[in-house]
Design a protein around this nucleic acid. Structure first.
Lengths: 211, 211, 211, 211
DNA sequence: TATGAATGAGATTTCATTCAT
DNA sequence: TATGAATGAAATCTCATTCAT
């Protein structure tokens, strides 16, 4: 489908590349979370990954490649973890489970999400396109689910508003990560999911007050 | 309450300082929007402001000061534009008007919002605290309004969920700016506000399907 | 005629640029003569010029710019010193004087010539074109003089061979510099000029042995 | 006479060493011709030679060794091809044949000559001495021939000028390679040899105009 | 013998900041 | 107050060389 943005390596052994890049990403996430992409130096990235600056550059070509590897690996994990969502039944219960799953995913990958959403603008244009495409695809998962529910008569929502609803689901879950400085102080994850889902599905207006 | 993070200047004339800083902020927003904070140099900032690098440093002490000035000025504008919200009557109509106003504010200050949310993490800790405090205060505006509506019996929402609802209102409006790459392609601002408010207030679930 | 390859500077004062670049060239020639272009670091170049690395980069953009400045300045000097040649009368005496002048020029700019001929291949393509064009123009000076002498009936040489004769004059003079490790040990400059001119003009073959 | 600059190898098998070094030189000449010595990396040299970087370092100790091997092999070829010159009879005809042979050698080894004369300055001092000694020896071949002709009464040239004449012969032939950007566009090799020999032997001045 | 992953010193270049004018 | 030349610490990236397999 979309062409995967390739990161060149001068090392030949594919398994080794995969292993080293995992080390790079793991170290880089730790670092970027703390200092951000621009304030982290390539030497620090190499050290965090556990090898020398020279070795780092055997597996990437530019510092931006590291950022791309980070984003790419996060999306791989997201995709893997969300693979079940597409198969949820088109019921409100299914939608609830999907939202719950995504919120817990955001919680597990809290740091990764923060890094990705704060730094992805620094990606080179082509890599950014690829990442935005991934984000779009992820949102589309929820869009399908919402549409299926609407088609099954479980939701009342005009067709035009469906994509927006999907975006809302996505960013409200992500908010758990990037507004952690406030929401994680006020709520437990369970509470957060509960209230958020309730508002999303049932709205704020009292039935009798509906306009 | 919060101590305004002071930016030192070696110039004495207060009016001149204000004027020069306006020039700085205006140029910097243009620049940061395009290249981001880290990729913009102080020389470029000075040029964008219309004077020399030496003069720039008469009005700031570090590059980060510029970022702070930008964030600070944006919040000033937000505060000014939202000053009416606090006085809205505690009705669903009042809440709608507040949401509408905030969405249109986000649209007007699109670039400024994008810059602020992408770059504020680069502020020095104390300045960041100050900015987060402003964000908190802004969210609190909506929180009060929601609480007033709930107290007035217009909304059904547990007290515990009120702050979260306020956050949702805020980030859904901001989403218009920082997901502009997708939502602004799909919707007009009016449509966006309409659907978003509808979902927020009335939820997605059909009344008879409510669980 | 040919577009001068421009070297960008971030300094505005033209006189200062000229002065600093003279310092750069003077230091660089000393350095390149000893270690060659590639073995000389930009820090060494800056130091040899008498200022900091940061200042060096206010007056050039890349290390290759230094090499270009060196070549360019040498050609300026050559041009200046040879400006009289074009006006020599079209006689054997005039040709002798021109050769003599060029040989003495090579001797005076010994180091510069060595640097230029050993390093010019490292110039970026456009700068190299410009330099080769200068070399061509210089050779053309001698070509005209030879042609004028031939036209005046002072020399016997087929028209086709005139450019080659000019090249011979030029490289035999330059040989004084780039084969200095042997010819400057064997001959004084005067001797060198004398023998070289004699061979060039009168050949090696005894009149009676001519074939 | 001259101590052959030894290049250490950790491989024992002499024939293998010879074979691998041939591969190295052949690849290196191709590479250096295109990018120069300094811009070529050892990885590229290994690849051009057809084996790995590890293997390259089994047959050399430093990158400069490669350059030395290249220069050395070129001189071996030159020596081999010129072995007949020493036996030429001391006549103008013999001298002509020698010049012709050397020019054609330069043409055949065009790339090698260009590489050698542009890069030999990068040799370590001892290797450079060795190479200059070879160059001196080669020039001496022509010197002997010229002296023999002079002794045989075929040439009129003072003893003192003989070494210089030999140098002229040598560099005029080499000029075919290192001024190829201009002379090879203007002349065929045959023409070049003809005009050049003519000027060298008979000079430019008309007999009756001789001073 | 052959391989190629690992190393880290060192190269070029940038840019926030200062300060003399 | 305004200017912009000077500074040098620090950043990214390269590449000759080594050594375990």
């Amino acid at each position: 489908m979309e062409l995967k943005h390739e990161v060149k390596s001068s090392v030949k052994d594919g398994d080794l590349i995969a292993k080293r890049r995992e080390q790079i990403v793991e170290g880089a996430v730790r670092l970027f979370k703390e200092k951000g992409f621009h304030r982290s130096t390539t030497r620090e990235i190499a050290k965090a990954a556990g090898f020398s600056i020279g070795t780092l550059y055997e597996y990437i070509r530019t510092k931006e490649d590291v950022l791309y590897l980070v984003c790419d690996m996060i999306y791989d994990q997201v995709q893997h973890r969300l693979s079940g969502i597409a198969d949820e039944e088109p019921t409100i219960g299914g939608l609830r489970r999907a939202i719950d799953a995504y919120c817990r995913l955001v919680d597990d990958l809290n740091d990764e999400f923060v890094v990705m959403y704060q730094e992805s603008k620094s990606l080179p244009p082509k890599a950014l396109d690829y990442v935005l495409e991934k984000e779009r695809a992820m949102t589309a998962l929820f869009e399908s689910l919402v549409r299926d529910c609407a088609d099954a008569g479980e939701l009342r929502i005009p067709e035009r508003a469906i994509p927006l609803a999907a975006h809302h689901i996505v960013i409200q879950a992500q908010m758990w990560a990037f507004r952690r400085w406030t929401v994680q102080r006020m709520y437990s994850l369970d509470e957060y999911i509960e209230y958020q889902t309730e508002q999303l599905l049932n709205g704020l207006v009292k039935p009798e007050a509906a306009d």
